[in-house]
Design a protein around this nucleic acid. Structure first.
Lengths: 334, 334
DNA sequence: ATCGTTGAATGCAACGTTGCAATACCCTTT
DNA sequence: AAAGGGTATTGCAACGTTGCATTCAACGAT
C-alpha cells in the first residue's frame, strides 16, 4: 500500500539517502537523478512517514489549541483564523475542547498521556491562576486572555479593563444612568470576567454612578441562555436597568431576546453593548453594538510567540504580555 | 528535559522492556517491580514519545475532520460533538478548514504532504463528485452529507430530500402559496443544496404550487450576509414571497434580519424555515423554526464507521450509506 | 530427583527517516 | 602530472518504542 524511501530508491536505482535528499531538497542532487527519483516517487505514490520524521526531528509540526467550547462563535471564529495562520507556517493544528474542566486543562498543560504537540495555545478557564503559574508546561505555551499573579507564559489578550471601561462609558455618554452588567463569573478562576467587571466599575465610579450588586449579574456560562436568564432577573429586580453591558456577544444576544419578549424597545428603553464582535451580532435585530477585539492579530501574535520559543528552545526569554487592539463598534443597540 | 524509557529503566534498575511492559500493561509484571517502575516514572515525569510509538504501530491515534468553515455555527457545534466522541475512543482530532477550496480537499484525501491521520471525516464542498469517487483515499474515509454518483466511501447524512420536503410542506400547511427558496449553489459540486432543492420542488409539485426560477435564490456561501442579500432580492423581485425555506439557519437569520428592516412582520407577512438547528436560531426574534438533524448521531456513527475500517483494514466491506434522523422544530418564524 | 509449566524479566531487531562523515568523481589550477 | 576544490552520492547510526523469542527462576506434579 504505502511505499517507503527504500522502495523509491530501489525503483530509481539510487540510494535511500539520495531519495531523502530529493524529498527534503537540502543537499545538491544532479538534475537527471532528481528527475528519475521524482518519477519513481510519482509512480509509487510515495508519502513521507511523519511519525518517522518526527521521531528523528524531535518535533511533530503540530500545535495545540485548547479552548473551552468549540461551538462558541467567538472561539470558532478565532480558531478559524488561527488555523489559517498556522497553515501559512506549515503547522497543523489540533483543537482541544476543555469545556471549562480543570482536569482537562491540567492534562493539556502537562501533556500527560503523551506529548503530541510542539506548542500550545490555551484559553484557561477553570484552572486556578496560582496552579497555572506553578505548573511547568511540557511545551511552549501561549495563554489567551488569562492573567495570573506572576505570568507563567506568554500572554496575548485585549486590555479587558480598558475595553470594559470604554463600553460602559459609551453607555454613560448616551445618558444612561442605571447600567447593569451581565457576565460575572465569581465561581471561576478565569480572570477575564474579573477584569471586565473592574473596567465597568471604574467607568461608573468616574461618572459618579452607582454599581449596586443587584445590577451585576453572575452567569454560569457565556451562552445566550445565561444572558437571557440574567436579563429576566434584572427586569424583574428592584431597579430595572436602562442599559446593559454584557461581557460577551452571546450573553448580549440572550439579553436582547428577553428584552424583545418583555416588550422593551431597544435601544430606546434598553441599550445593550456586547463584547467579542461575533458575526451573529451583525444580524440581530437591531444589530449589536459591541467591543471588537482584533482577532486577526490575536491569531498572528500567538503563533509568533510560539514560533519564537519552539525554534529557539534554549533561549530563555521571560514571558511577555502582548495586548492587541480593540475598538467599540457602534451598531443598533447602543 | 524529557526522559525516555531508558532513563526510567536505569532509575528503577530494570530493563527497558520491563518499563515498556508496565506502561502498556500488556505483559505480566510482578507487583513489586511495577511499583518501583511507577515511582521512577513519577519522579522523572516520563511521557511516552508518541512519534516513536506511531512509527512502531503504524497508527497515529489521530483522525482528521475536514470542514468548509470552522466559524460556521453548524460545523462548530458538530465539531464539538465529534471531538467529545473521539475523546471517548481515545482518539485525537485534527480539524482542517477547507474553505470550499477544491485543492485543499484533494490534498486531504490523498494526504499529500504526509499522512498524519488514521482516518478522515470530510464534508466535501468544492470537489467534483466524479473526482471524489475516482480518487483513492489514502486513509479510511467518511463523507458528511455528500452524494456522489457511485459512493466512494462511507457516508453519513440526513435525508435531505425528505427534510426539505417536510420543511416546505409545513409552510404549505400554514396556507402559504408563494414559497421561495434561499440557498441554491449551482456553482458548487456539493450535492446538499441540490438535494434540498429537489425536496422543495417535490413538495410544491405535490401541492400543485409553482416554483418559478425567480423564487429560488442562489447564494455564494451559506452566511447570514448571503441570506440577507437573497431576501432583499426576493422582496424587490416581481412577486414578493409569503414564505421562505432557507437551506441553512444562517441564511434564514440573514433573511429574518432583512425582513425586519423592510418592515415585514414575521411570521404574519413572511414565514421562515431554516435548516441545521444552530443555537443562535433559538434566540432570534422571533425564534427560528428549523429542520434539526440529529448531530449527536452524526458524530457517533461517523466515528463508528472509521473505527470499523481502521481496526480491520483488510476487511473490504463495500461503502455504506447511513441516514440519521431529523425533525422539524416549530418555533416562532413559521 | 526430574520434568514440565507458569510467571517474570530480558535482548535483539525493526518501524522510516535524516545528520554526519566519508567516498568517488570530475574539473580546474599550478 | 599532481594537487586542490567542488559536486554528487553513499553507508552508518540513531531517534524511542514495541513484537518476538528467549532466558531464568520457582513451583507443583510425577
Amino acid at each position: 500500500m504505502s511505499s517507503r524511501l527504500k522502495d523509491v530508491a530501489a525503483r530509481a536505482g539510487v540510494s535511500v539517502r539520495t531519495v531523502s535528499n530529493v524529498v527534503s531538497g537540502s543537499a545538491s542532487v544532479a538534475a537527471e537523478t532528481r528527475q528519475r527519483v521524482q518519477e519513481a516517487i510519482e509512480e509509487l505514490g510515495y508519502q513521507p512517514n511523519l511519525a518517522a520524521r518526527s521521531l528523528r526531528a524531535g518535533r511533530t509540526g503540530i500545535i495545540g489549541l485548547a479552548i473551552p467550547e468549540l461551538h462558541s462563535p467567538y472561539f470558532g471564529e478565532l480558531a478559524g483564523l488561527l488555523v489559517d495562520e498556522a497553515q501559512r507556517r506549515s503547522w497543523t493544528v489540533i483543537i482541544d475542547q476543555t469545556r471549562g474542566d480543570a482536569e482537562a486543562e491540567r492534562r493539556l498543560l502537562t501533556q500527560s498521556g503523551g506529548r503530541v504537540v510542539d506548542g500550545l495555545i490555551i484559553s484557561p478557564w477553570a484552572l486556578d491562576p496560582a496552579e497555572l503559574a506553578a505548573t511547568a508546561p511540557a511545551v511552549p505555551l501561549v495563554l489567551l486572555g488569562e492573567r495570573s499573579p506572576q505570568e507563567a507564559a506568554d500572554r496575548v489578550a485585549v486590555d479587558n479593563v480598558a475595553a470594559a471601561d470604554e463600553a460602559t462609558s459609551h453607555l454613560i455618554g448616551l445618558g444612561r444612568r442605571r447600567i447593569a452588567a451581565i457576565g460575572l463569573q465569581p465561581h471561576l478562576h478565569n480572570g477575564t470576567a474579573r477584569l471586565r467587571t473592574e473596567g465597568y466599575r471604574r467607568a461608573l465610579d468616574r461618572a459618579g454612578l452607582p454599581h449596586p450588586t443587584a445590577a451585576q449579574r453572575p452567569v454560569a456560562a457565556l451562552h445566550r441562555a445565561d444572558g437571557a436568564r440574567a436579563m429576566a432577573e434584572l427586569i424583574d429586580g428592584p431597579v430595572a436597568p436602562d442599559a446593559v453591558f454584557a461581557f460577551s456577544d452571546e450573553l448580549a444576544l440572550g439579553a436582547l431576546h428577553v428584552a424583545h419578549e418583555r416588550g422593551l424597545r431597544v435601544p430606546e428603553d434598553l441599550a445593550i453593548v456586547g463584547f467579542d464582535d461575533i458575526e451573529d451580532g451583525r444580524y440581530s435585530h437591531p444589530p449589536l453594538t459591541t467591543i471588537a477585539p482584533d482577532k486577526q492579530q490575536i491569531a498572528e501574535r500567538s503563533l509568533q510567540c510560539l514560533a519564537d520559543r519552539i525554534y529557539s528552545p534554549g533561549n530563555d526569554v521571560p514571558p511577555q504580555e502582548l495586548f492587541v487592539p480593540h475598538r467599540l463598534v457602534k451598531r443598533g443597540t447602543a
